[in-house]
Amino acid sequence: MSTQVTTAPDPTAAPAGVARRPWWAVVTLGLGILTLVTSEFLPSSLLSPIAADLGISDGTAGQLVTATAVAGILAGPVIVASLPPVDRRLVMVALTALSVGSNVVVALAPSLPLMLAGRALLGVALSGFWALSLSVVSRLVPAQRLGRAMTIVNTGVSLATVAAIPVGAFLGERAGWRAVFLGAAAVGVLTLVLQLTALPRILVDERSGLRPLLDTLRTPALALGFVGLALLVTGNFAAFTYLRPMLDGVGGMNAGLLAVVLAAYGVASFAGNVVAGVVGDRRLRALLVAVPLAVAASTAALGIAGDSLLVVVGTVVLWGLGAGAIPTMIQTWLARVAPDRLESGGGLIVATFQTSIALGAALGGLLVDAFDVDLAFLVAGLAAGLGALVFSRVRTG
C-alpha cells in the first residue's frame, strides 16, 4: 500500500501523509544512487577484459564511459521537461528498472554498438534519478533536515566512488566481466523491490515543460549558482582525472602508498558528504565558500609542491573532504533558494555536473599534454577559487 504525499506548509514539520518510515524511504533512494553510480564506474575496472573479449582496443572500450556521460548531459533536463505530473514513486522505480535493463544488455551484448546503447540507457537512468531525487526527498522529510537527508542519498555516490572500481576488478578476475554486470543488475532488482515497498505515493505541483526549465536558468540568483558550480566541478575534474600521473611523480611513491593515498581520498570524500549535510542545514553560506576553497587550495598545493609525499597526503585528504561535499552542498542550496523549482533545478544541476566533468577532463588533458601535470593542477585550483568567489555572492535564502 502507498500513501499520498503533499507539501507541508510548516517547513519544520514532516510532510503530511508521508509513509510511516520516511527515512527508510530516503535510504532506498540512496541505494538507488549507489547501484547507478557503481554501474557507471564498472567499465573503468573492466576495460582490459572487455576489450580482449570484443577484440577492440582499450581506448575504444573506454567509450562505454563516454556513452553514459553524453547521454547523462541531455537526459536530466529532458526528463524533467517532459515528465507529466505523475506519481514520482513510479518514475523513480522505472528509472531503477531502466538501470537493471542497461546492465543486462551490457552483460549479454555480443558487440560494442549494443553495449554502447546499453550504457546510454544507464546515462538516462542515472541523470533522471539524480535530477528528481532532491524533489522527491523534499516531500519525505522536513525542510530543516533536507541537507541531512540528501547526505544519505549522496552517500551512494561516495560509497560507489570508493568501492566500485576495486570490487569490480576483484569480481571480474574471478567470475568474468559479464558476470559482474549481471551481478549489478541483480543488486538493482533488489533495490527496486525495496523502493516499491518503502516509497509512498509522491505527487508534485511543479510545472513541467521547457519553459520552467528556461525560467529557472534565466533567474539571476540561480544562474549565478550554476556558474559557481560549473567553475568548481570543472576545476575539480581537471585535476582529479589526472591524479594518477600526479602521484606517479611523487618521490618515494610505490604501489602500496598509492593505494593508501587513494583510499584516504575516498574516506575523506565520504566524510565530506556527511559533514556537508549537517553544516548545510545550519551554516549554508559558510559551506558554499569553504567547499570550493578546499578544492582550490588542495589542487593548487599539489601543483606547487606535489613532489613532497607529506604535502600529497595532507592535501589529498583536504581535497577529498571538499569534493565529497559538492553534491549535497549544491542540492541543499537549491532547496533553500528555489523550493518551488526543485525538479527543473535538479535537471540543470545534473547537466552542469556532467558537462563540467567533460570540460574539466578535456582542459586538464590539454594542459598535461602541452605543458605538464603541475600546470593542470594550478589551473584547476584557479577555476575552483573563482567558484568560491562566485558562491560568496549567491543568495542563500
Rank of each mutant, 00 (worst) to 15 (best):
T7P: 12
G303K: 02
L363V: 11
P212C: 06
I165P: 00
G314F: 06
W333L: 07
L29K: 00
V80L: 08
T219L: 13
A384L: 05
M329T: 12
L229F: 08
R201V: 15
A325G: 08
S111V: 13
W23D: 12
M150P: 07
G280M: 00
V390R: 01
V136F: 01
M246G: 09
G320C: 06
S298A: 12
E206M: 10
A239R: 02
A384F: 05
L382K: 13
T68A: 14
R395F: 07
A69Q: 14
V105Q: 04
G176I: 00
W177N: 08
R218F: 10
T216S: 14
V279W: 08
P49R: 05
L112D: 04
L318E: 06
L318H: 10
A69H: 13
A16E: 12
L210A: 11
V233H: 03
T155W: 01
R178D: 00
F170E: 01
T35Y: 09
G252Y: 04
Y265V: 02
T38Y: 05
L284F: 01
G277W: 02
Y242F: 12
R201E: 13
L367Y: 05
A120Q: 06
R89D: 04
T96L: 13
L367G: 06
L243H: 03
A97P: 07
S45I: 08
G320I: 00
A221S: 14
A255E: 11
L382N: 12
I165T: 10
T7V: 14
M150G: 04
L54E: 00
P166N: 07
Q63R: 14
S99N: 13
L29S: 02
L210Q: 05
T396S: 05
T216F: 07
V289K: 01
A271C: 14
L47D: 00
A255L: 14
V312W: 10
P43C: 06
R119V: 01
P339V: 07
L284M: 06
V274Y: 15
